[in-house]
Amino acid sequence: MAKVSKSPWMLHYDGSSCNGCDIEVLACLTPVYDVERFGVLNTGNPKHADILLITGGINTQNKPVVEQLYSQMPEPKVVCAVGICACNGGVFKDCYNIIGGVDKVLPVDVYVPGCAARPNAIIDGVVKAVAVLEEKRKKYKKERGEKA
């Protein structure tokens, strides 16, 4: 991530996680870890967001919610799965109500494993997501015939 042309905004959604990763995502935003120094800002509105951070696996009821959130985000967008549950289901893989990781319903760009994922790992994932976003933006502009 050499240079970011725009400050990417982040939307956090709790799939079916145990809260462990959620509070670590929030801890990333607060003084000690502070992702805002990379220009990343947390937002509550999917229409403002560039990066979708999902913690926890997908179950029957949150599947449409996750799909809707993703569809409301403007192009280009990046999905980041935080925690082992979001990657493939984790300890809850065998539960009757877990479909699996986030990649069962959305195209995931960055995986951050860990139970719970540590803030350092989450920040690393977010920074990688910013790089992916930059690439996607270039590609998106090229497709539309705009100057990169």
Partner: peptide
């Protein structure tokens, strides 16, 4: 029901020592 996983039922699939690690993940706080 957005976070319902059904981890109580996992007791039938994991033995009582392993289940401790499942029940710790009821809630991360």
């Amino acid at each position: 029901g957005y976070v319902h996983r059904g981890l109580e039922q996992l007791a039938e699939k994991r033995d009582f020592n392993d289940y401790l690690y499942v029940i710790e993940r009821t809630c991360g706080i």
